[in-house]
Write a protein that binds this DNA or RNA. Structure first.
Lengths: 194, 194, 194, 194
DNA sequence: TATGAATGAGCATTCATTCAT
DNA sequence: CATGAATGAATGCTCATTCAT
């Protein structure tokens, strides 16, 4: 029973991911998503109240998966600098390995209403907290500057990585994204280091 | 005659800026823009072929003005580090002083189609070149690392500043944006410095 | 077995009566009726072919009960004028006592298609015949005019009572409906009397 | 200018009258009305905010015309009984002569939401007042009973005529409606007379 | 019999764009 | 050049009905 329910639910999310990535949210008709998911139009409304909710749930679930990877990727890492390396590596390699997800997070996420973005923003909070905790830990470990504005620095780090990913996507993915980790990190570690 | 043509043209661009900033691109009907500009709906199509073209032209013109400010702001500055400070200062203070423009560049720009974004990307190229030139100059001056990947670094710098501005906007502009210049620059200069 | 069948059948009719009365026919989804009846959506289609059939059957059954009351209410009454008084009294008091039924007959009955109304009209025929018989009897008894057009008069009497009930409903039932019997009857008896 | 605006407006109302009469309100798609009116779908929304408003305006305008006929039909009639004859004559003959209007008032009017009916009810008020004034005048003239409940009597008269018209329509208009005036009036005048 | 998940046809409304004046 | 009335394509969502279990 539950597995069946999950089957359709997951199929719709997966179909939506593909369709959103290919056409963008505003050009993704519900019927197109339904076809991609192999269900009827009406079925979508058994699982989602509005079309927008598909996008929101998609982010919640996909970002949730990503955040788990970040969390488990650094959980036994004691050195804050090494932890930051892991975060950047995961950030680049996961999006490089999952282009549809990359398109949706980098392009579609930004195409949504301000109101919608706020809702989605909630889903990103754990990632934000993870980075801020990492920064605080580094300051305690005396490997990051004590005068760091943690919130501002989190924005600088996230924004920098985000732009690298978006640019890679828009350029048509003509080069390796994960190959940018070393240079990115050198910039980061020098920038925030003691 | 030409001045008259320009009058309407400029009125439409200015009206569009206000309407886009208040309602977002997708909620900005052509008739709303026309009313804000004080012209008839049909008049807009004497100056712009499609609604999207208004957005494109708006960016071209507004970014053009911004880039002039960047250019003139650093033209007599010989020290690359000081030039970078000026760039960051102008970036933050100009957008802080012109909230409508900030909304449109940070929020609406992202809400457009991938295709549209590519066109708009063209308008940003001069800013990109300006930053890259600045980086090259700093490397020559031996104040920036010689091993910098100039293109990647440009993304990191731009992305970092961009995220700071967006976050400031979404937060409701509850703090001073230009007050973030010093911390941002310390991060930048350490990150790219020798 | 038959009793069980009847249990569900009756439950659906009763649920439909409540739902129709509260929301009107067009706003009464099958699933809402099913919930009110305590059965599954699909179960309804074991007893009724189409949603409209519920309404038809509802009228047949409820009007059947009403007509029984009319019939038994006048069966031992010899005076045609007294019989008419009984009919009017039952008409007003029964609908006053059963507001849900009143709503459905006065409001929802009229909201249905012409085709549907014809079918429902069949269910009213016994009432019609009862009034016509009563009129004929009164003519024989020389208490009603001999020149009465029986069919037209039946419409006049029924229409007059019907409007009084509808108006009482729409006004929000702020006064007593059965208190209108005397005035109504004086009008009727003078109108058709010798 | 005004004449042109009115042209389309009137065309839509007339188209709606025909379509409503033929298919009923709920089966009358906006596109069908547009086609009947010879305009594009979107044009309807330049003149009416919602589909329901077409129905409301239709009643307002058509009932307004009817009421004018009632008013002018009795304005120089001093005898209240003669005035009542005129009212009944106009009621039957106008609806007989305008079948589409009859369908819409007798059938579609009843098919609308309770909320909508209340709005439409406003448009009938002048007719109601006209009948009540007529009754009061008759009482003064001593040709109608002094003990008449004016409001109730108005319902009885209107309901009676209304049912005669509806029945005539549902029966397929197989007989003359205006031929029922004499019998109807004899019933009325006896019923309310001294 | 009974269920309720799944279906998919059907429709009001918006709005970018055109064109007669 | 300027107008703004008219156009009509495009789409999210509802809900009566079916059918596998």
């Amino acid at each position: 029973m539950t597995s069946r329910k999950n089957e359709k639910y997951e199929a719709i999310l997966e179909g939506a991911l593909q369709v959103f990535a290919e056409h963008g949210f505003h050009r993704s008709q519900v019927s197109k998503i339904a076809r991609a998911a192999g269900v009827a139009d009406g079925t979508i409304y058994l699982y989602f109240k509005r079309k927008e909710d598909i996008l929101i749930e998609l982010f919640r679930s996909k970002l949730g998966e990503l955040i788990e990877k970040f969390t488990s990727g650094i959980e036994n890492v004691t050195d804050a600098r090494e932890a930051l390396r892991r975060v950047c590596t995961i950030h680049y390699s996961e999006l490089e390995a999952n282009v549809a997800l990359a398109y949706v997070t980098q392009i579609e996420l930004r195409q949504s209403d301000l109101e919608l973005r706020k809702e989605i923003g909630e889903a990103v909070k754990p990632y934000i907290k993870l980075i801020e905790d990492l920064l605080l830990k580094g300051i305690e470990q005396n490997v990051f500057r004590a005068d760091l504005d943690v919130k501002l620095t989190r924005l600088l780090l996230f924004g920098a990585m985000d732009e690298v990913v978006t640019s890679w996507l828009i350029s048509g993915r003509k080069y390796s994204l994960s190959a940018q980790v070393d240079s990115t990190l050198k910039f980061f570690l020098q920038g925030i280091g003691n």
